[in-house]
Structures are given as C-alpha cells and as structure tokens.
Amino acid sequence: MGRDEDIRQAIIDYASKGAKSKFYFKDMLTGVKKTIPDAGASEVKKVASAMVSEEVMELLSTGSSTMYGLKGRGISVEKSGDAGG
C-alpha cells in the first residue's frame, strides 16, 4: 500500500475501534502515529479531508471546535438536531 493508503487505514482503524465515535484531530493524529510514528499532521489532514469529501468521514462542529468521526458511527446528521448536537 502507498503512504496515503496506510494513513487512511490507520484513520479507519482509530475511528472504528476507539471508545468515542467523535474525536478531535489531535487525538486522531496521536492514534495514527501509533501505527505510523512518522506521520505528519499535514499528511494526516490531507487524507482525512479527502475522506470527508468522499463522505467516508464526517465533521461535527460545535461552532467553537470541530470533531471528526466515521460516517455512520455514533451520532448521525439526522439525529444531531435531536441529540444535543
């Protein structure tokens, strides 16, 4: 697998196995670094942004901060309005 694919897999592993379904970028970066220690913030961001565009991941914003999550895991778009955002 290429570097981007490795990072993508590490993101999916982190996002699907963690206790929390929504997490900060920083936590995701730490999670990815456990598998790929030299992963840089910018390359993880690039892959994560592509995954958001592909609708594999989604973003939850409180307005002041933003969290990532795997689409379909935890709170959903439809539910976000009914479950405290």
């Binding site: 942004s49 609708e55 989604e58 973003l59 939850l60 914003s61 307005g63 933003t66 709170i75």
Partner: peptide
Amino acid sequence: GGIVGVLGYGGGIVG
C-alpha cells in the same frame, strides 16, 4: 453544533 455543513468544508456553518 451538529453535523451540518457544505460538502468538503469543515467550517463556516454552525448548526
């Protein structure tokens, strides 16, 4: 807060 926004953007919309 919530999962609302425009595709590809991670800001600018506050649910």
